[in-house]
């Protein structure tokens, strides 16, 4: 019997590091040299086939990196099974921002969340400011997955998502596994109470910022 998993994935990171480009490469295998900034958050889906028996469907939240949307992030990562935190290898400040996101996820998100740290723009390696050693060491210390990608050339992109897809079914809570009911999606798993919490959160944040 084939197994189908469904997971929520959130992309976080400073603005202009290439979150939307990474998703676009993953979902449509496309790249635009010029992209408008994401506003709020964009929702996409993509299915990864692991083997003949197993597919993983990602429900992806591609969030806006601008500071003014910062307070909305919990609405997206609260129910997420996995997060891809993106930095730009040519901007060391973007790794700092990524560390901030990772700390926030470790404190606030589901303790089982799978986090991947992703250094994008390897096609611009000549202007590299973040060394592989530095990022890798940090990822190891924090127990994160780590990879470098180029949304422009496509290098490493599918690999990141596939690696997450492979890791997820092993770590996600049993309810997200197949056979736990017709709607085995994590959203359904968490049910009404948590949704309510998200609701209240979203509203407060929107008013306080």
């Amino acid at each position: 019997m084939s197994k189908q998993y469904q997971f929520k994935l959130v992309l976080l990171g400073e603005s202009a590091v290439g979150k939307s480009s990474l998703v676009l490469r993953f979902v449509k295998d496309q790249f635009d040299d010029y992209r408008e900034s994401t506003i709020g958050a964009a929702f996409l889906t993509q299915t990864v086939t692991l083997d003949d028996q197993t597919t993983v469907k990602f429900e992806i939240w591609d969030t806006a990196g601008q500071e003014r949307y910062k307070s909305l992030a919990p609405m997206y990562y609260r129910n997420a099974n996995c997060a891809v935190v993106v930095y730009d290898i040519t901007q060391s400040s973007s790794l700092e921002k990524a560390r901030t996101w990772i700390r926030e996820l470790q404190r606030q998100a589901d303790p089982n969340i799978v986090i991947a740290l992703c250094g994008n723009k390897t096609d611009l390696a000549a202007r590299r400011q973040v060394s592989q050693e530095e990022a890798k060491k940090y990822a190891e210390e924090e127990g994160l997955m780590w990879a470098e990608t180029s949304a422009k050339t496509g290098e490493g992109v599918t690999e990141v998502f596939t690696a997450i897809a492979k890791k997820l079914p092993l770590t996600a809570s049993p309810a997200a596994r197949p056979g736990a009911g017709a709607r085995a999606s994590p959203g359904a798993r968490q049910g009404v109470d948590l949704n309510k919490q998200t609701t209240a959160q979203g509203q407060n944040e929107a008013c306080n910022c």
Partner: peptide, 25 residues
């Protein structure tokens, strides 16, 4: 606006203030 209409996403979810409805939220 192109950030929304050119987006490849299946949906966008954006916070927006409708000034005549409620200018402060």
């Amino acid at each position: 606006s192109p950030s929304i209409s050119n987006s490849q996403a299946s949906a966008s979810w954006i916070p927006v203030c409708l000034p005549k409805f409620n200018p402060s939220g």
